[in-house]
Amino acid sequence: MTIPAFGLGTFRLKGDVVIASVKTALELGYRAIDTAQIYDNEAEIGQAIAESGVPRSELFITTKIWTENLSKEKLIQSLKASLEKLRTDYVDLTLIHWPSPNDDVPVEEYLHALLEAKKEGLTRQIGISNFTIPLMEKAIAAVGAENIATNQIELSPYLQNRKVVDWAKQHGISVTSYMTLAYGKALKDEVIARIAAKHKATEAQVILAWAMGEGYAVIPSSTKRENLASNQQAQALRLDDEDKKAIAALDCNDRLVSPEGLAPQWD
């Protein structure tokens, strides 16, 4: 995997809340941070990083290009604006957040622009998010699988997205899981609770360990120090085959993120 397996998500965190979350995470040893233009928190994250004193070279920062900035005229300028807010000369990974609605901007156009941003040194790696198999096919045709670091997709015990995951793996594209805890719903699952008790772990640790064990990168968020620290410990938890089978059986194609007018036709 060319990207860290474990990082901090910042979706829905703004203002002083995101500053505190990022600073606490960095104190605890987190070194990967995931944001996006539409989260409207890049400037606060830039501030938190600057005030943390952690050297830029130790960090892995990901941002995502919003749909309004996908055209070749706008994409690179919007990324430069993100860099300014984040107070850095480059990000480690830039993703296309959602495919262009109704294919208004062709996949080829925005991925070529993103590849150009990489050549200019604005981003070390590029990737995609919320891409289906047909869209991944277009992405590979545009820039080659070797230039697509990851596909960040909704993935939880209730939405295991096997078809997309298997296709991505076969074509050398790693998978990053978001919404891994299913908005907290999976934390209340009896099966997860049993596995957690067996390992003397938390439910969140079990789910994150399961996802990382499947080869996915995870980016859980939290505003509480104890949860940030606890989530981090999921990296050391190893589930056995019985645990994995039990979690595999929870899959029920329960998708939580499918914004109207934005979501593609899911596989």
Results as ranks from 00 to 15, higher is better:
residue 147 N to F: 01
residue 179 M to A: 14
residue 176 T to Y: 02
residue 145 A to G: 06
residue 173 I to L: 04
residue 152 Q to E: 15
residue 164 V to L: 14
residue 168 A to R: 00
residue 172 G to A: 02
residue 191 V to Q: 03
residue 134 P to M: 03
residue 186 A to C: 09
residue 157 P to E: 03
residue 216 Y to L: 12
residue 211 A to C: 12
residue 199 H to C: 11
residue 157 P to R: 00
residue 221 S to G: 15
residue 160 Q to S: 07
residue 206 V to D: 03
residue 165 V to M: 00
residue 216 Y to F: 15
residue 192 I to V: 15
residue 147 N to G: 01
residue 148 I to H: 00
residue 207 I to F: 13
residue 212 M to D: 06
residue 218 V to G: 02
residue 146 E to P: 00
residue 137 E to F: 01
residue 186 A to F: 08
residue 198 K to C: 05
residue 186 A to Y: 04
residue 208 L to K: 10
residue 150 T to W: 01
residue 137 E to P: 04
residue 190 E to R: 07
residue 188 K to L: 15
residue 215 G to F: 02
residue 158 Y to V: 02
residue 179 M to S: 14
residue 141 A to H: 07
residue 151 N to V: 07
residue 196 A to C: 14
residue 207 I to D: 01
residue 214 E to K: 15
residue 198 K to E: 08
residue 156 S to Q: 05
residue 186 A to G: 08
residue 189 D to V: 11
residue 222 S to L: 12
residue 211 A to S: 15
residue 189 D to E: 14
residue 218 V to Y: 03
residue 150 T to E: 01
residue 199 H to P: 10
residue 215 G to Q: 07
residue 194 R to I: 03
residue 203 E to S: 15
residue 197 A to L: 12
residue 139 A to K: 01
residue 193 A to F: 08
residue 213 G to I: 09
residue 200 K to W: 00
residue 208 L to I: 13
residue 193 A to P: 08
residue 195 I to R: 12
residue 221 S to P: 05
residue 215 G to K: 09
residue 153 I to L: 10
residue 209 A to D: 07
residue 210 W to C: 09
residue 178 Y to N: 01
residue 191 V to T: 15
residue 162 R to C: 05
residue 218 V to L: 03
residue 158 Y to H: 06
residue 143 V to Q: 03
residue 215 G to P: 07
residue 158 Y to S: 06
residue 220 P to L: 12
residue 153 I to A: 04
residue 175 V to S: 01
residue 213 G to H: 09
residue 210 W to Y: 15
residue 136 M to I: 05
residue 169 K to I: 06
residue 203 E to I: 06
residue 206 V to I: 15
residue 185 K to P: 00
residue 211 A to P: 10
residue 187 L to R: 12
residue 145 A to S: 14
residue 173 I to R: 00
residue 149 A to M: 06
residue 163 K to C: 05
residue 218 V to F: 08
residue 196 A to E: 07
residue 132 T to N: 05
residue 201 A to T: 10
residue 154 E to F: 13
residue 134 P to I: 06
residue 188 K to N: 15
residue 202 T to C: 13
residue 164 V to A: 10
residue 185 K to R: 14
residue 184 G to C: 08
residue 137 E to K: 15
